[in-house]
Amino acid sequence: MSAPLITDIAQAEQGTSLWRDAWLRLRRNRLAVLGLAVLCFFVLVALLTPWIAPYGYAQQNLELGATPPSAAHWLGTDIFGRDLLTQIMYGGRVSLAVGFIATAVALVIGVTWGAIAGYAGGKLDAAMMRLVDILYALPFMIFIVLLMVVFGRNMLLLFLAIGAVEWLTMARIMRSQVQSLRQQEFVEAAISLGLSPATIIRRHLVPNALGPIIVYTTLTIPSVMLLEAFLSFLGLGVQPPQTSWGLLISYGAESLEEYPWLLLYPGLALTLTLFSLNFLGDGLRDALDVRGAKD
């Protein structure tokens, strides 16, 4: 372990709660703070977009067409002559919402499912994990098309559909973590103390498995944002003139030689988000390293 972390740990001894300690330690990680700041900035922009966007998001200028960045349009325009900056700002609203909410859905289901399966073991574990296998194997596309026929097109369905696929891998990772933790002394101690399984999972297993879970979560958010674009092609998801980063990127990819800026800037927004998430994720992981803190 590197030196700064040891001082962190020493400091943490005096802390009152796990989360307060974590926050204190997180604040010392400059990259994590930077990541958090960038994310907060994006979220703030997304919230304020209707008031601060330079143009209307549907405002076209067909004769102008696709133009590179200029004084009037800082990030250029798309083939309809729409301002790209405005598109990215509005797209961010959709993408951030989808990314965070759908991932949260996946996280809650996946972690709970994996933790219960891994903790219980035996028949329950087998049954739960085989269900995961079944869901992996079903043809996702047909499933989405059917969902739309039954429920119509709406955003709630979008979150559910994405959450429904993304939780599977999360559950597998959580289960493998819990399985290995369950054999460790501190869990066995907790069991012999007579704590209920729910308490053990919540208080001991989940916090200890947080590292890989946080990491996987930070990776899931961008892939969810791109999955949203695929679902939009199937007819679920946002409809034009509304847009999202995923859609902007996939349209940008079609004309990457002719209008590279249409790809570059939405891609940059996604990349910045991703890197911020990862730095924040790493920082969180280090900050929440309870095992380290207990030594």
Partner: peptide, 9 residues
């Protein structure tokens, strides 16, 4: 990402 986290753990 996963191997880095796993290794740190």
């Amino acid at each position: 990402r996963l191997s880095r986290a796993g290794m740190l753990e």
